[in-house]
């Protein structure tokens, strides 16, 4: 196969004595979708921030289409990787209307036909003229997150990082946004790195997944195989922690304690 869309090798990041990410490597093929699964302290958010250039890795390399991200210019980097953050209440500029926010990005990247592109983007995420003319304050959480997705897609990046992008939404809204993301993936073939603690949501959107625990990858593979036949005890714990019929919290607690004592 030719060069992967995203090629990450030996990524490390340490804060003081705290190792956030240790020797993380993965590749994302064109049109691929990878889940980074973990709990707080797993290093998944640090990884996301390194991918978009908000944190500098201590060691390791990030290649997008074979080009090192660290060497890219500001605008080139923006076209390589974009992100949707978790909290739609904080990730949009409160003083700009949605249309102005989208126009802002397009103008920066010298898009030839901004008005048409804005309409196209709004359409892609299912927002109408009323939402476009509104400031974030006038929108619901789901609408804001759609706007944030449109903003990330505006410059047609190669890779879209979703950092817990649906976790803050109500259940019924989460499903709507997941469908929007699934459609975008199908229609644009954009590469997706989906950072999440929610295995079911990762399963819905991703082909493959990495399970991170304390900055280390404990398991990786196709998501279905990972869910049906988990090899690592931590992956097993994560899967069994999801509430279901006949769920026994007591058993899971014991499983968790056994895991903690071993490490």
């Amino acid at each position: 196969m030719s060069t992967p869309l995203l090629d990450v090798t030996g990524l490390c990041k340490t804060y003081g004595t705290n190792v956030a990410v240790s020797d993380l490597s993965f590749t994302l093929p064109a049109g691929g979708s990878l889940g980074l699964v973990g709990e707080s302290g797993s290093g998944k958010t640090t990884t996301a921030r390194m991918l978009i250039g908000l944190e500098r890795p201590d060691r390791g390399q990030i290649l997008v289409k074979g080009e090192p991200l660290a060497a890219a210019s500001r605008l080139a980097r923006a076209k390589a990787v974009q992100i949707v953050f978790q909290d739609p209440y904080l990730s949009l500029d409160p003083r700009l209307t949605i249309r102005a926010a989208l126009d802002d990005v397009l103008r920066l990247h010298r898009h030839p036909d901004r008005a048409a592109r804005v309409t196209e983007l709004l359409d892609q995420v299912g927002l109408g003229a009323r939402e476009a003319a509104a400031k974030p304050r006038g929108l619901s959480g789901g609408q804001r997150q759609r706007a944030a997705i449109a903003r990330a897609l505006a410059v047609e990046p190669d890779v879209l990082v979703l950092d817990e992008a649906v976790s803050a939404l109500d259940v019924s809204i989460q499903a709507q946004v997941l469908n929007v993301l699934a459609d975008i993936r199908r229609e644009t073939g954009i590469g997706i790195v989906f950072v999440s603690h929610d295995l079911a949501v990762v399963r819905y959107l991703c082909d493959e997944a990495l399970v991170l625990h304390r900055g280390v990858v404990v398991e990786r593979g196709a998501i279905e195989a990972l869910l049906t036949d988990p090899q690592d005890p931590y992956t097993r714990l994560l899967i069994s922690s999801v509430p279901h019929a006949g769920w026994s919290p007591e058993e899971i607690s014991e499983q968790r304690r056994a895991l903690q004592q071993r490490s």
Binding site: I52, G53, L54, R74, L75, R77, A78, K79, V81, Q82, I83, F85, Q86, D87, L90, S91, L92, D93, P94, D104, V105, L108, H109, A148, R151, A154, V155
Partner: peptide, 14 residues
């Protein structure tokens, strides 16, 4: 520290 400022950086603004 608000994510919207981080978003501006990610979009490539100076």
């Amino acid at each position: 520290t608000r994510p919207y400022i981080a978003a501006y950086r990610v979009q490539g603004h100076s």
